[in-house]
Simulated scan of single mutants.
Amino acid sequence: MARDSLVRGMGSFFKECDHPRSRWSKCPHSYKIRFRSAAGRQVEESGFATQDAAIDRLTDVYKTKKAAPRGQAKAERISTYGAMRFSEYAAEWKAGQRDLGPASVRHLDSLLEHHMLPLLGSRRMNTFDHKVVEGFIRSMERAGVGLATQANAFDKLKAILLDAYRLGLFEEHPLTGVKPPQYDPKRAVIPSPEQLRQIRTAGDDRFLLIADLMSGCGMRNGEAAAVNVRNIVADDVYRITEQVNQTTGHYARLKHRKAGEYRDVPLPARVRETIEWYADKHGTVDGYLLRHPQDASRPFPYYYLTNQWRRIKKSGEVDIPEGMVIYSYRHFFASNCLTHNIPITDVAEWMGHKNIDVTFKTYRHIMPGTISTAAAILNQHFTA
């Protein structure tokens, strides 16, 4: 879809066709315009035969908004959005979250459907205050909702209400003074180095590779599944550029990152040796080490790792701490870093957390360190 924009605040005009802008004047399709009303709502109009007609309409709208008193525009926003039910506002807010990947959208939908909308869906937006938010948290506590889920639901509600606050719906932010649910770091089960030695070799070569990548580099499951020898950018640095998306089964951008963004993580020599060993033994496809067991043209399937983990646990042949999950490999990485005085700011960046609060809620201890010294330290204390 071709599109062009005017000065900031005027909106844009475009054509919903594949013709380049240079051919718009000869293209038979009509122009459309898109702009924000005085109330802040996105509006789209169509049926403009020429570019000049589209621009004239945008200019008229822009002048009208500029001429209107700022108080009037705010009053219109409050009137429009304040009367909305939370379910309507949340749906409109969600539509604007274009940076969310499929897995993140799925998670958001689950939080809305099971926790937020049943309790808040029918509430008018202009009736939110700190007591309403505290009541929401207490309701989740009474229902026995897990602390991690409580924290996630609270964070999403916070984002939605912040959006409403910026529109002017509240004189004071509804979350002011509210104590958020606290995720209990004791729930993060971390295997000991000896337990990790046993567990990492309890499965096949694929399982060992993923265990080393997660516990040695702090990768998420999907990131480890997308491991590529071309991403070893230095002897002690690995560049994480993508993941295998759990929902789609395809390669996708990283969580909390835009397309094309990456993060560099320390690469202990022990992990680099595992990568090189696996590549020599099993080969690669376009640099990728892990592929679908039945079809080498497809990415490594998420369920394969889960199924193997279940078989290892069921066998009872290795010492697995109570409550440990595959994600505990990541916990081991964080614990190994922090107990050896690597600063939590670096750990948060390497683990790909959206902000340091996530790391701080789960882990602790802040000490200096760099990516190169971290690689050396991690290699020294990593499982043999």
Rank of each mutant, 00 (worst) to 15 (best):
R3W: 00
D4C: 13
G11E: 01
K15I: 02
P20V: 00
R23N: 10
C27G: 07
H29E: 11
G40M: 04
R41C: 06
V43A: 09
D52I: 14
T59F: 07
T59L: 07
Y62T: 13
T64P: 00
K66P: 02
A67W: 05
A68L: 13
E76N: 12
I78N: 10
I78R: 14
Y81V: 06
F86C: 01
F86K: 01
Y89T: 02
Y89D: 02
A90S: 10
A90D: 05
E92R: 08
A95N: 15
P102D: 13
A103V: 08
R106P: 06
L111Q: 08
M116H: 09
L119Y: 03
L120Y: 06
S122R: 07
T127I: 10
T127L: 08
V133D: 01
E134F: 08
E134T: 10
G135V: 08
I137Q: 04
R142S: 13
G146D: 09
T149A: 06
A151C: 11
A159N: 06
D163N: 13
A164R: 00
Y165M: 05
R166F: 12
R166I: 15
L169F: 00
F170T: 03
H173Y: 02
L175P: 03
P180F: 05
R187S: 15
A188K: 06
P193W: 04
E194H: 04
Q195S: 03
Q195I: 00
L196Y: 03
R197Y: 01
R200E: 03
T201V: 12
D204Q: 13
A211K: 03
A211L: 07
M214P: 03
V227S: 13
V227Q: 07
N231T: 08
D236A: 01
Y238T: 06
R239C: 11
I240E: 08
N245A: 12
T247W: 09
H256Y: 12
R257D: 10
E261S: 03
V271L: 00
R272F: 01
I275E: 00
A279H: 07
K281C: 09
D286Y: 10
G287Q: 15
Y288H: 15
R291H: 14
R291N: 13
P293H: 09
D295P: 14
A296Q: 14
S297A: 14
S297M: 08
R298Y: 10
Y304Q: 15
R311I: 04
K313I: 04
P321N: 04
F333W: 01
T339C: 00
N341A: 02
P343Y: 01
I344E: 05
D346V: 14
H353T: 12
D357H: 11
V358C: 10
F360H: 14
M367K: 13
G369L: 02
T373P: 01
H381L: 03
T383Q: 09
